[in-house]
Write a protein that binds this DNA or RNA. Structure first.
Lengths: 338, 338
DNA sequence: AATAAAATCCGAAACGTTTCGGATTTTATT
DNA sequence: AATAAAATCCGAAACGTTTCGGATTTTATT
């Protein structure tokens, strides 16, 4: 492996000059630079980023901490699409991405912050962690620049990007109300998700705007899991047969709910309207195709990466960034027949 | 940021001893070790992996080079699932994963090998590159340990894992033949994919085993793209109306083909049987649910990661690893009515 | 030709570890 | 108590860069 020293020797010059030549400094003679570049080329030199990072005290590396990259949750294209957005932006820069493994066994021994500090990442993007995750606190206490996705926290070194969950959920509920539904159930995620709290709020708001009173028993938690949503939908529909429409806080749960309803003999959308949230790839392929609130998951990642890198370059203070959502009307919702 | 020196000073001991204590060497007194560990804890020490990597000349980092992590190809859950498998295995080890960005602008300036050498990754996993990708050659010429997915190359430092594409395609064709079909079309990927060559071979073999002669005009390339498969299916079915079954080299293309056939007025599977390949999450959700050859994409990644790390630890020579596939019969194929 | 200014170059220290080879201290043996 | 053996510790060099401060060389000015 050839180093700067080899080049220096070969070119008859000091390592300082080699370093400065190769890094484009102005105080090196054009001819010298040419010669050095030629030697570097000949010796097939590539700089050792470890050494550089060590002395520069920055690694040009950003950490990616995602949950939901497990075998089970692949079907839910959400995480992946966010990652793809992150990847795309980062690809435009000189940074590389290191994927931190959220394996539980390792997690026990080393905290995330330790991982980040060891690897000397310049910053971190976090996605899919729960509100009660100890890492949330850890990050706030550390001074690692950091951008959260879908968790509204901020400080002088942490920002976040999210979509407008309240508005999205409000639109979902309104859509159902405007179709004439009065008894609208909801299958939410879980307590430890900020988005769930917000979506519940939006749901209530939507009902209120249409003069519908909020019935707590109409709301169940499905933990963002298809099967769990199936179970909760069964319960919900059996105990409250007056319900004619259900808002699900994720598409995967909506798919579970459709299955449940179909199993109970409902025809969809004629007898039961179901609206999802996310607009994952599956949404438009299932039948009936899912009416849903679309989030731009790719942008979520793209903007998160952009914000982080801007922070790292001191071009921006951490801030919040809220993306718009969009109602996509497909086949799983229709006017109430009751 | 506290270093080993701070600890040494605080604990009244040399840096050598701190290093050896923290790394579990035997030649340090139990009491000294305790004291050092306590100081390290108090000072909130975490080792600088950059410095360690520099002197050890290994980074405990493995590079991941995937194409197909773009916005467009997310629907095809293939890449993601492979990545998830890789991630899972790597999570069990002390390695971390760095994602190399295959952005074209960067690509032009730095070759993959340069990226790998700069970042000093210990090894690389490659997925989704084409057979005419210059990097293939680059890798073979370098000495970076490396595992390919779905490209059968090997040397003293490169191995690969793949599925049995010939057998899988043979089973697909046989399945159709056994349902009574005699005119079986195929929509393949493209010339630059090894898997396409193999699947074509398997398709021919399957036909042959059932006494069906191979008709070159029955085979089109759909480039693994849904829309392109749609187009090719239209052409294929219009020019050869005798075709009663089509084997598609990917599920996404099968979905495109189903769309095309439906558009042309075919009822599926009654009038046209379609079988896919991959068994992506979508496959079981579309209607009719897709009969397909399932590959264990997760395992593909998992085994690739395992092989690479075994190579790095000198516990294994690079080798090839071929996984089995499985025919999943769903609703898109049925007996021939002609 | 002497001097000043600009251009070009360099030595040495530093980043935070690991590790070689040997030194010192402690314990066991006679 | 002297000696040998084992246990414990340490100094210094090394990994491959960058960068500070200054030295040397070249060019421009008088």
């Amino acid at each position: 492996m050839t180093t700067i020293k080899h080049i220096a020797k070969q070119a008859g010059v000091s390592v300082t000059t080699v370093s400065r030549a190769l890094n484009g400094y102005s105080d090196v003679n054009a001819k010298t630079r040419k010669r050095i570049e030629k030697v570097a080329e000949e010796l097939n030199y590539s700089p050792n980023s470890l050494a550089r990072s060590l002395v520069r005290n920055q690694s040009e590396t950003i950490g990616l901490l995602v949950s939901g990259f497990t075998k089970e949750s692949i079907k839910d294209g959400f995480t992946v699409e966010v990652m793809s957005g992150i990847n795309s932006y980062v690809a435009e820069t000189e940074y590389d991405l290191v994927l931190f493994n959220t394996d539980s066994s390792k997690q026990r021994k080393k905290t995330y912050t330790q991982l980040c500090k060891e690897r000397r990442v310049d910053g971190v993007i976090l996605q899919g962690i729960k509100t009660d995750d100890p890492y949330l606190e850890e990050v706030m206490e550390s001074d690692i620049p950091c951008v959260f996705i879908d968790i509204p926290v901020s400080s002088d070194h942490v920002g976040f990007v999210s979509t407008d969950n309240i508005e999205g959920a409000r639109v979902a509920a309104s859509h159902l109300a405007e179709l004439g539904h009065r008894n609208i159930g909801m299958i939410n995620g879980h307590e430890q998700a900020f988005v769930s709290k917000e979506r519940l709020q939006g749901y209530k708001l939507g009902l209120q705007q249409h003069g519908i009173t909020y019935v707590p028993e109409y709301v169940k938690d499905g933990s963002f899991i298809e099967q769990e949503a199936y179970n909760q939908a069964i319960v919900l529909l059996q105990t409250h047969p007056e319900i004619s429409a259900v808002f699900c806080a994720s598409d995967l749960m909506a798919i579970g709910a459709i299955d449940a309803a179909t199993h109970l003999g409902y025809r969809i959308p004629e007898e039961l309207s179901i609206i999802g949230y996310d607009d994952i790839p599956l949404a438009s392929y299932v039948s009936p195709a899912l009416t849903t609130i679309a989030q731009n998951k790719y942008d979520l990642g793209y903007y998160a990466a952009r914000m982080l890198i801007n922070i790292l370059k001191n071009q921006q203070k951490p801030e919040k960034c809220i993306l718009k959502t969009e109602l996509k009307i497909r086949q799983s919702t229709s006017t109430s027949i009751r």
